[in-house]
Design a protein around this nucleic acid. Structure first.
Lengths: 314, 314
DNA sequence: CTGAAAGCGCTTACAG
DNA sequence: CTGAAAGCGCTTACAG
């Protein structure tokens, strides 16, 4: 034993896994690694998994092809003790196939009947965001959304769009297709989307961007056009990214690191004993800052409409 | 064989590793996961490693304690075929101990006599940044740097400080300790550091922030103080973060994703045959945008001083 | 309670 | 070229 210490011996982890049947590692599946949201979730999960002595295997699956390759080859089999899948929407058969592989799984971003999950209520959060704009008197409300055709990869953009449309309809406003433009969840995409919205006649007086990064891109375009925020146009984002407070962006806060932490915790305590999978929905919150304001000319009217909105949250 | 396909058989990777002696996985060591630079490097390395069929193991070592634990326990031993260590400065004995562990290693951010490395010339890049400010007529130049006491963890802050001081001295300006404040490599840290600099008498007329995130934080403070950029104060950053172009930040571009890609490539082709380790230094580049400008009142004088600066790069 | 043996599921050198 | 056997370095049930 002393000699082992002396010689700096370490047990071969592969031999021990083979003998013991445990890998002591967890896989994290993310669409990509360059987006703020995913890195924060990984960071949260990493902290709790590392504290429990687990190694973390990264599966960055990229686009739709990578997604399908991952789901069919399932490279994690016999490789990890568990899997955290972030923001990959699964069809029913896909869930079934994953479950059949036998690896414990926790989902982040989507609910599931088969696996425990951690997520927010995107529809409600988007409704809150949109209603905030409508309550300020805006009737022409634009939407900057995710990639245009990506039915299975992400669901957040679709849910947030649902919430946006629902909020409008609830106020008797019919959503207009020309007011919905894709923004690619990036600064640049947001900036370009905003340019597209400004070209519509009449242009929206308020815009809900589905991520803060897109919202900040949109802000840039608005200001470059010589328009003022919020006097000429209001903008609300989603996430409460570090940068949001910084630029005074009104947005929907969602706990990001906490979603990763919680997913890891659920995974570690997963019994597999047939108890129904936990579906945890974390709260979001409207954070009003300086990029949203009343529609010009209706300030007085507003005073009465603002009240029901007080303290609204998703 | 057909039956294997039928039954969805996959070889146990641990058994095969044990028999074959290869793990088909690579470890990535980063100080933390929440910083832009590291996620981008990981993303670059991930792309080339995944393409070669390697799994990626993440070691996020956190603070100084985590760093030392990692270096002493070396949890990657017998676990991975190779290691990419990002921005962890290694003492000579630490390098020797790592080399003795026998795992092929490539360093990102620091040079080494024992391991191949990919990095930029931080001293030269910081010199370029500082000289840019001095060439614009600034003599009171502030520095927003990294964590105050972190001699071994990161070297970039120290090197960039060296470059800053060298550039000043070359122009006959003695660096002033009260002009150097730590900014924690975050937005908030940059904002606070800037507030500290503005409180100095006389305050600097130009500031070199060691990262774009800190520079953007500084910009915020300056504008909140009612000062104009660049008329009242010039700010230059470092990295060329996505956000930099967006806010018009003058900065030093460094290839980030490319450093990860290259490190992975070097690791995959590492022979261990005694050839001297490759030390690749990637070029950086000054990107002048709108947050830097001539010192007030010396515009005319400037015309002559600007010339030697043309085309300068690190 | 201690220690030697069997077995985890592969790969690969080797005998046929 | 094919196929059976040994061995990779552990864990753990089992005999003593």
């Amino acid at each position: 034993m002393a000699a082992a210490k002396e010689l700096n011996y370490v047990a071969d982890p592969h031999a021990s896994r083979l003998a013991a049947g445990k890998t002591r590692s967890i896989g994290m599946v993310v669409p990509m690694f360059t987006q703020w949201f995913f890195t924060q979730v990984v960071s949260g999960a990493d902290a709790v998994l590392a504290a429990s002595g687990y190694d973390i295997l990264l599966y960055s699956i990229g686009g739709p092809e990578g997604r399908n390759r991952f789901l069919t080859s399932m490279p994690f089999r016999k490789r990890v003790d568990g899997l955290i899948i972030v923001d990959v929407a699964l069809a029913a058969e896909e869930e079934k196939a994953l479950a059949a592989a036998g690896t414990p799984i926790v989902l982040v971003g989507n609910g599931s009947k088969l696996f425990p999950s951690v997520r927010i209520d995107n529809v409600a959060a988007a409704t809150t965001a949109t209603r905030h704009l409508v309550n300020l008197g805006h009737e022409h409300v634009g939407l900057i959304s995710g990639p245009p055709d990506d039915p299975l990869h992400f669901t957040a953009p679709l849910r947030r769009r649902d919430g946006y449309q629902q909020a409008l309809r609830q106020q008797g406003i019919e959503p207009r297709p020309e007011f919905e433009v894709p923004g690619n969840f990036s600064l640049k995409g947001g900036a370009e989307a905003m340019a597209q919205l400004l070209a519509v006649h009449p242009a929206p007086t308020a815009v809900f961007a589905q991520s803060d990064e897109m919202a900040i891109g949109a802000l840039r375009t608005v200001r470059d056009s010589g328009l003022r925020v919020p006097e000429d146009i209001s903008i609300i984002g989603f996430d409460d990214h570090d940068m949001a407070e910084f630029v005074g962006l009104t947005t929907i806060f969602q706990p990001v690191v906490a979603q990763g932490e919680l997913a890891a915790t659920l995974l570690l305590q997963e019994t597999g004993d047939g108890d129904p999978p936990a579906g945890v929905v974390l709260p979001t919150k409207l954070r009003v800052r300086t990029t949203t304001g009343p529609l010009r000319g209706v300030r007085s009217l507003l005073m009465s409409r603002r009240l029901p909105h007080r303290g609204a949250r998703a």
